[in-house]
Design a binder for these strands. Structure first.
Length: 576
RNA sequence: GCCCCGGUAGCUCAGCUGGACAGAGCAGCGGACUUCUAAUCCGCAGGUCGCAGGUUCGAACCCUGCCCGGGGCGCCA
């Protein structure tokens, strides 16, 4: 299969070639040419700013460099103009005929012209990772939705992806849960809503431990028994895990999220002593205040505790074991961790330890801003959490209201199906369309926006095209759409065609920077361009020849929208 | 006290290795459905990019200081 290059990259390579020829004495150390999209279409489609940077380094006149460069870059087939402007900008305008051809070429390609940047590379993505015995709430949605988009994006770019749900299934809370389960359990409640009941007994047990020292001690004993493999506690623990996984799975199905692995912390339990031994033999282990730690003061990261004073291991130890195991088993180039911002220091710590141990893997913490409520942070103990299940229900309910008013003739089961895709899509898009690192304050209104820059806007554009295409197929069964060249006569068509052909740049950018919002922005612009087009020309009433070309163009736009939404984990129904 | 983020239009946010007069959505105002989905489109209005310096041909973006908000800082994860 043909391997495509993105347009900006293709132009940058042209520039590089000309530069190497123009400056046989060599370019500045570390210099590599770059071409970017213009901010303003009046300046062209792409621009190169290298002349200014080079002028400084080579002590030459930027306009002169730009002039020479522009002359060497002339390529009438691809570029309708190459012009020098301002202090030394080189502006490129693509030839609409070239764009149209490109469109056709990429249309035949499974990844719509996206380069296989990840060919031969493996990436492990660790995301979602809820705690066993606690219901998932709105705090989990960002990790799940962003992690899943990164998962899809990487696969699309040719990476081998191992998605792993690193469940919080092992830790001190289980002592309290075991005790609470034995004393406070309501069997009916457990049957009705297992995880909610498990959480309830945990909270009750936790509260009792606050006022009753002996209760806390008893919980510690239960934990020790569990860790030593006590059959009864182990069986209960397994039950907690199974029940929780079952409930999480319902949420994941609704969100269309699948994992390759569900390896919780407990999976690495037997490896923990080995981690310590390895640190020991690497000379990194130090005793401090009774605990075993790795000293990271030099890196200004404090100390990383790998064995507690009481002899127990903690999360840093588990995370190290997890890295070792993943590296051994999957040989990944990169491991991505998608969690909220609070864990930055922890990740820096154990990343540094891995580096000291010489682990040959790139560890990346993709963190996102913590979700807050308008009245402040939320927590289980304050009782102001919004459960994920409730959130999904509400999203679908609001979408259904809208579907019923806008498509009253649609059969009811289809209305529900559309409402599901639209409601869940809106929710996901709300998270994916902004910079992950910005703070987010949860509001129902924002999370479930159904107009403006929202998933339903994109889904609507897509469904409109499908509807036009279906009507066209019914009215003009003789038309050869597949054989028609995409329309590129009118300015609106050229704008739309160019946007469509830039899809790979958005995908690559989103993947490389771990920023799904780059793709979301792009798709929104594509849908906007389509909506303008839809408004300004007739389709079914356009003349023979023109009609097929327009169908060809919008069909490709629809496919691009659908593919792009798919990469964000959002469905694109045929009708909405 | 130290470290990490954020501060852009009334509100919610983009702004992709510094680039050409700062962009959307919502809300507001004015227009467009006897054509294919008006969940739409077109137009108007709205900003000292937290503040003050600095680097640069060029700064919302880089550096320094300060102000405000969020988070983190040894045995929770």
């Amino acid at each position: 299969m043909k391997n495509f290059n993105t347009i900006d990259q293709e132009l940058a390579e042209k520039v590089q070639t000309v530069l190497v020829n123009t400056f046989p004495e060599g370019l500045p150390e570390g210099f590599s040419s770059s071409v970017v999209k213009t901010a303003d279409a009046r300046n062209g489609d792409y621009q190169c700013n290298d002349a200014m940077a080079l002028a400084k380094a080579l002590r030459k006149n930027p306009r002169e460099i730009a002039g020479n460069l522009a002359a060497g870059l002339a390529d009438p087939e691809m570029l309708s103009s190459v012009e020098v402007a301002g202090p030394g900008f080189i502006n490129f305008r693509l030839n609409p005929a070239w764009v149209a051809k490109r469109l056709v070429d990429t249309d035949a390609h499974a990844a719509r012209g996206t380069p296989a940047a990840g060919e031969g590379k493996t990436v492990v993505i660790d995301y979602s990772s809820p705690n066993v015995a606690k219901p998932m709430h709105i705090g989990h949605i960002r990790s799940t939705v962003i992690g899943n988009a990164l998962d899809r994006l990487h696969r699309f770019c040719g990476y081998t992806v191992i998605s792993d749900n690193h469940l919080g299934d092992w830790g001190t809370q289980f002592g309290l849960i075991l005790l609470g389960y034995r004393h406070f359990l309501n069997a009916d409640a457990l049957a009705a809503s297992p995880v909610q009941e498990l959480e309830r007994v945990y909270v009750e047990s936790y509260q009792k431990s606050k006022e009753d020292e002996s209760w806390l001690e008893a919980a510690r004993q239960e934990l020790v028994k569990l860790q030593q493999g006590d059959a009864e506690n182990l069986a209960l623990w397994e039950k907690f895990v199974t029940l929780s996984l079952g409930e999480f799975e319902k949420i994941y199905q609704r969100l269309d999220v699948r994992f390759d692995l569900h390896r919780g912390e407990s999976f690495y339990n037997d490896d923990l002593p080995g981690v310590l031994a390895r640190l020991e033999s690497a000379g990194l282990l130090v005793e401090s205040e009774g605990a075993q730690v790795v000293d990271l003061e030099e890196e200004k990261l404090g100390v990383c505790i790998v064995r507690k004073r009481d002899g127990g291991f903690n999360y840093a130890t588990t995370d190290l074991a997890t890295v070792f195991s993943r590296v051994r088993e999957f040989k990944p180039e990169t491991i991505l961790y998608v969690t909220d911002e609070r864990q930055q220091r922890h990740f820096k710590q154990f990343f540094t330890v891995c580096e000291k141990l010489g682990e040959a893997v790139s560890l990346q913490h993709v963190w996102f801003g913590l979700m807050r409520l308008p009245e402040g942070t939320f927590s289980t103990r304050q009782g102001n959490v919004i459960k994920l299940e409730v959130l999904l229900d509400e999203a679908e309910r609001r979408a259904l209201e809208m579907v019923k008013t806008s498509s009253p003739d649609m059969p009811e089961d289809q209305q529900r199906e559309v409402a599901r895709a639209v409601g869940i899509g809106a929710l996901k898009y709300a998270d994916l369309s902004q910079n992950p690192q910005s703070l987010v304050t949860f509001t129902w209104e924002k999370a479930m926006a159904l107009d403006g820059n929202s998933a339903p806007y994109l889904q609507y554009a897509h469904a409109r095209i499908r509807s036009v295409l279906d009507k066209h197929a019914a009215q003009f069964p003789e038309d050869d759409v597949a054989g028609a060249a995409p329309a590129a006569e009118l300015p609106v068509e050229q704008v739309l065609g160019l946007k469509a052909v830039q899809f790979p740049e958005a995908v690559i950018g989103a993947t490389r920077h771990y920023r799904p919002n780059y793709l979301a922005d792009y798709l929104y612009e594509l849908a906007q361009n389509y909506s303008t087009y839809h408004q300004s020309v007739p389709f079914l009433k356009s003349e023979d020849g023109v009609r097929e070309s327009r169908m060809r163009l919008i069909r490709m736009v629809a496919d691009t929208l659908k593919t792009g939404l798919g990469l964000l984990g959002i469905e694109a129904p045929e009708r909405i």
